[in-house]
Simulated scan of single mutants.
Amino acid sequence: MPIDAAKAVAAEPRSAEIGWDHKDVQLYHLGLGAGVPATDPDELRYTLESRLHVLPSFATVAGAGMGVVGGLSAPGIDIDLAAVLHGGQSITLHRPLPVSGRAVSTSRVAAVYDKGKAAVLVLRSEAADAEGPLWTSDAQIFVRGEGGWGGDRGPSERLELPARAPDATVERPIREEQALLYRLSGDWNPLHADPEFAKLAGFDRPILHGLCSYGMTLKAAVDTLLDGDVTRVRAYRTRFAGIVFPGETLRIRMWRLEGGEGGAGGDGGAGGRIQITVTAVERDDAPVLADTVVDHS
Rank of each mutant, 00 (worst) to 15 (best):
E43D: 02
A34L: 06
S107N: 09
S100G: 13
M66A: 15
S50F: 00
S50K: 07
G35C: 03
L30S: 06
S105G: 05
V69R: 14
S50A: 09
G101F: 00
A119E: 05
A111R: 07
R108C: 09
A118H: 09
A74D: 04
S73K: 13
F58Y: 13
S100D: 10
S90C: 02
S90I: 00
L52C: 12
G88N: 07
A62L: 06
K115V: 12
L93Q: 01
H86L: 11
A119P: 03
A59S: 15
G71C: 10
R51E: 15
Y113C: 01
E43P: 02
S57R: 03
D80W: 02
G116Y: 04
D80S: 14
F58V: 08
L55S: 12
V54N: 07
E43R: 03
P98W: 04
V84Y: 01
P37Y: 02
V61A: 13
K115F: 10
S107I: 08
A110Q: 13
A74C: 04
T60A: 13
L44H: 00
D80G: 08
G33F: 02
Q89Y: 05
M66K: 15
L30V: 14
D40V: 03
L30I: 14
P56F: 07
P98M: 07
H53G: 15
D42W: 00
A111N: 09
A62E: 03
G63M: 07
S105V: 14
G33T: 04
A59D: 04
S50M: 00
P56G: 09
Y46R: 10
T106A: 09
H86D: 11
L93D: 00
E43L: 01
A110F: 06
G31K: 01
K117H: 12
T60V: 15
V112I: 14
R108L: 11
P75E: 15
H86M: 08
V61L: 09
A62N: 03
V69E: 10
Q89P: 02
V104A: 11
G87M: 08
G101I: 10
L93E: 00
R95G: 07
I77D: 06
L32M: 12
S90G: 13
L121H: 08
L85E: 06
S73A: 14
A59K: 03
A62K: 01
S57N: 07
D114H: 04
V104R: 12
I79F: 03
V36R: 09
G116N: 07
A62F: 03
A38D: 08
S73H: 12
P96T: 11
G33A: 06
D42Q: 12
P56V: 08
T92R: 12
L44K: 08
D80V: 10
G116Q: 05
A62D: 02
V68N: 07
A83G: 01
A111V: 07
G76I: 14
S57K: 05
V109R: 02
A59E: 04
L72Q: 12
V69A: 15
I77Y: 06
S107W: 05
H86T: 10
D42C: 03
D80C: 09
L72E: 14
A34C: 11
A74E: 04
A59C: 12
P37W: 00
P75C: 10
D42L: 11
S73E: 14
F58C: 08
G35Y: 02
G101S: 11
I91P: 00
T60R: 00
D40C: 01
S73Y: 05
T60H: 12
P96M: 09
G116W: 04
P37H: 05
L81D: 09
H53L: 09
S73G: 15
L97Q: 06
